[in-house]
Design a protein around this nucleic acid. Structure first.
Length: 819
DNA sequence: ATAGGGTTAG
């Protein structure tokens, strides 16, 4: 509650006060003392003046009020409005309401005063009620009424009654007045009706700075920075001088659109206009330079500020966090605390975001404790940040707990939780949470839906993916590049490459790199390397600049299709033609491509001549090649090097023990198992998913938790006889345990993908397609068996593993045994 | 008697 506003606007007016009372006002004794001796039937202006003078003390106001009642004179609404204002400015709405309710004659002035009272006390919800009441009782609505009511609707983002008010105001021509007009523009902008705002603005005959500020601020809010800047230029072209508010909006536009040069010009303007003492403008400058990635300049402005608000501090702290300078942000926080300024939820939000970025659970917990201590848990933004922090740190349990305790939640909260679940491998729970979210009538935004599409990819659930696609269409989401890319990814990874293709062709006009990258990746996974290259040449034709991810996708695609020469050529043209320096991941792709194709020596040579130390990804690609092509010596060497780099990576141990197992060196296999046990490392359990009906079923190896497990094993037993009759010989090289052959075969027949396929055969109609999703790579033996099964039962089977798709038809696989 | 625009944070 701020009183200052009232005080600024109301200065004491001597001339109005009758002589008899002047002494009272001049020497200012408490009015209740003096007025006791005052004669009755005072003119109302005396009370009005007294209310002016003693408006900051409730007890005085009350006593004047009592006197007014005692003297109850004509022109009562004049004093009633005054009382309502004074009471509500003091934060006492109850007496204000009482005065309002007791008015015997309802008039516009009283209603306006009451509205203003609700506004200053942020009781926005009461304003439209009052407005409606005025309509029902045929009380005239004036320009003040409209403005107050619009302000309340702006704060509530109410676009129903707000629009009604707009219509009323337009009908009465109020919007031609610069004050009402700019309120209207502001309201329309905040509710997302930028076009209407523009119309109102264009129709205004007299535009002052505030009008311009409203429309410029609107464009900035909507992210239409170019338009905002255009309007700014138009405004100064018309001879108007920008105010500090104009400059704040302009700086924001420059910062968010990355226009550094213009931003610096704007900084120059600020100095030229003599605004270098304006706290708002300086804070905006700090924010702008942070957004432009220039924390040095931001800090320069910040350190040279003669006074700082908490918001200035927060802007600087957030600037550091935004630019990944987490230690600096904490250091500044310390400075803030030491300077005795205190901190607020805004400060904490930035610091928590810093913890999320660095997965710093320890500091995150400290900040969480701080929030609890300061009883800030009810702050929506803050709690959402905490949920996000725990999720990003992998502490999904804590995230869920905080989420569950939150009373108020909005889309962002729900989305943070959804993303957390999906990123931590709980895709199914994420989808369940989405249902709950719909039950609670929270409308999803595009971020929510994109993250849900990722969940569907995780689960290999085409049905759920489709239902989200239809949700998008039904609810009128524009298929922008982000959503389209996610959809392409979903369809491609759920096996519907044609649907992905269709979306891509319809969305190509968006000329978006990520869109192309998704399609390239999709083709790559399906083994359509040449199509992937086709997308690339289309990009080049359309002068669309590929980025580093494009090359990761392209090289992966080449790798999966065995396009060795093409891949090498691409790798070499990256830097030459597109000025993209090959990063570690590109080397990893190329090494993968070469070693998969059996060019182990060349791959090894490439690793040796890398300009920087190869990461584990690069070496793992090489190790995997050694395994496939059974190069034991090189494999051991690489594994050794890898373990020295990352001794906690269970994948390396597994791969090495695979190599040993294939060579029959069981002592070494057991030694490695022992090492893993000692370090508490566990093999990532392999599992397969299949969607039947409306459910996704999960199978682990040798799983007997499914209600139909005995049917499944019986079917597999029958299938085993049949495939053996077709000439299948088990390849037990991928069994990592030192057990006898029959036992190894038994273990093979317990692999999760076989269980899922058998369940699929049991529970889907004859002739229909079976889709399996596996988290790890499919083993050689399962690959062979699946080929046989597809022929015996005459069913198409699609298996998506950690890398790519295998489409089995009539005894053959789309990958031609190259993967 | 009563009036409009702005800076940080998920």
């Amino acid at each position: 509650m701020s009183l200052s506003y009232f005080h600024l606007k109301h200065t004491f007016v001597k001339a109005r006060i009758p002589y008899s009372c002047r002494c009272i006002c001049n020497c200012a004794p408490p009015p209740f003392v003096s007025l006791h001796h005052a004669p009755f039937n005072q003119p109302p202006s005396i009370f009005s003046s007294l209310l002016h003078q003693f408006s900051n003390t409730l007890i005085h106001v009350k006593s004047i009020h009592a006197q007014i009642i005692k003297n109850w004179v004509s022109n009562e609404n004049f004093l009633a409005s005054k009382l309502i204002r004074v009471y509500s400015n003091l934060g006492f709405l109850c007496p204000a309401r009482k005065v309002f309710d007791q008015c015997s004659l309802m008039e516009t002035t009283v209603c306006n005063a009451m509205m203003a009272g609700f506004l200053t006390n942020q009781q926005y919800i009461e304003v439209p009620k009052l407005f409606k009441m005025m309509g029902c009782c045929d009380i005239e609505v004036d320009s003040y009424t409209c403005m107050f009511a619009l302000k309340a609707c702006t704060s509530m983002l109410d676009d129903e009654i707000g629009m009604e008010i707009v219509k009323t105001a337009v009908r009465r021509g109020f919007h031609f007045h610069p004050y009402v007009g700019s309120s209207m523009v502001n309201y329309l902008v905040k509710c997302g009706y930028l076009d209407d705002a523009r119309k109102v603005f264009d129709g205004m005959p007299e535009k002052d700075v505030v009008c311009w500020n409203s429309i410029i601020g609107g464009f900035v809010r909507e992210g239409l920075f170019k338009e905002a800047i255009q309007m700014f230029l138009e405004m100064i072209g018309g001879g108007l001088s920008p105010s500090s508010v104009t400059m704040a909006s302009l700086l924001k536009a420059c910062g968010e659109s990355g226009l550094k040069k213009l931003g610096m010009c704007a900084h120059g303007c600020v100095l030229a206009l003599g605004m270098n003492n304006d706290l708002f403008v300086l804070t905006s400058l700090v924010d702008m330079y942070s957004n432009l990635g220039d924390t040095d300049r931001a800090a320069l402005v910040f350190n040279n500020m003669c006074g700082r608000s908490l918001i200035s501090w927060n802007a600087m702290i957030s600037g550091y966090v935004q630019n990944g300078m987490i230690p600096q942000s904490f250091a500044l926080f310390q400075r803030l605390v030491q300077s005795g300024f205190g901190f607020d939820s805004g400060t904490l939000v930035s610091l928590i975001r810093g913890c999320s970025q660095t997965s710093d659970l320890e500091n995150g917990k400290i900040l969480h404790a701080c929030i609890i201590r300061k009883e800030l848990e009810s702050n929506l933004v803050l709690s959402t940040a905490i949920v996000d922090m725990y999720s990003k740190c992998g502490a999904i349990k804590q995230a869920t707990t905080v989420f569950g305790r939150m009373g108020k939640k909005n889309v962002i909260t729900w989305t943070a939780m959804l993303v957390g679940l999906s990123k931590n491998g709980h895709a199914e729970d994420a989808l369940k949470l989405f249902c709950q979210m719909q039950e609670e009538n929270v409308a999803a935004n595009s971020v929510t839906l994109v993250s849900l599409l990722h969940c569907c990819v995780h689960l290999g659930s085409l049905k759920k993916g489709r239902s989200i696609h239809s949700h998008l269409m039904r609810n009128g989401y524009a298929l922008d590049a982000v959503i389209t890319s996610a959809l392409i990814d979903m369809y491609a990874k759920c096996g519907k490459i044609r649907s992905a293709e269709k979306l891509f062709n319809n969305g190509f006009h968006l000329k978006d790199v990520i869109l192309c990258n998704s399609m390239i990746m999709g083709y790559g996974m399906h083994g359509h390397g040449h199509y992937a290259l086709g997308v690339y040449s289309r990009m080049i034709q359309e002068r669309l600049k590929p980025n580093q991810t494009t090359f990761v996708s392209l090289l992966t695609a080449c790798s999966h299709s065995g396009l060795v020469e093409e891949g090498k050529a691409l790798f070499h043209c990256m830097e030459r033609d597109h000025n993209i320096k090959p990063l570690d991941k590109h080397y990893a792709c190329l090494v993968d491509l070469l070693s998969r194709a059996g060019h182990l020596k060349e791959a090894d040579a490439l690793v040796k001549q890398m300009p920087f130390q190869p990461s584990t990804d690069v070496l793992e690609a090489l190790l995997s090649g050694c395994r496939t092509h059974k190069n034991i010596n090189m494999g051991i060497q690489i594994a050794d090097r890898l373990i020295s780099l990352d001794y906690l990576n269970s994948g390396i141990y597994i791969m090495l023990s695979n190599i040993y197992a294939e060579a029959g060196r069981w002592d070494s296999v057991n030694y490695i198992r022992g090492l893993m046990r000692m370090q508490g490392l566990k093999k990532i359990p392999g599992f397969s998913l299949i969607e039947v009906g409306n459910q996704v079923y999960t199978f682990f190896a040798s799983d007997d938790s499914h209600p139909r497990w005995s049917d499944i094993y019986q079917l597999l037993e029958n299938l085993r006889f049949e495939v053996e009759a077709e000439g299948y010989i088990p390849d037990t090289s991928c069994v990592l345990r030192d057990v006898n052959e029959p036992m190894k075969v038994k273990l093979l027949w317990g692999h999760s993908e076989r269980l899922a396929i058998a369940f699929g055969l049991l529970s889907t109609p004859y002739g229909s397609l079976i889709r399996i999703t596996k988290n790890l790579r499919v083993c050689v033996d399962c690959h062979t068996v699946t080929k046989y099964i597809s022929k015996i039962v005459q069913r198409e089977i699609i298996v998506r593993d950690a890398n790519r798709f295998h489409h089995f038809v009539n005894g053959k696989c789309s990958c031609n045994d190259y993967w």
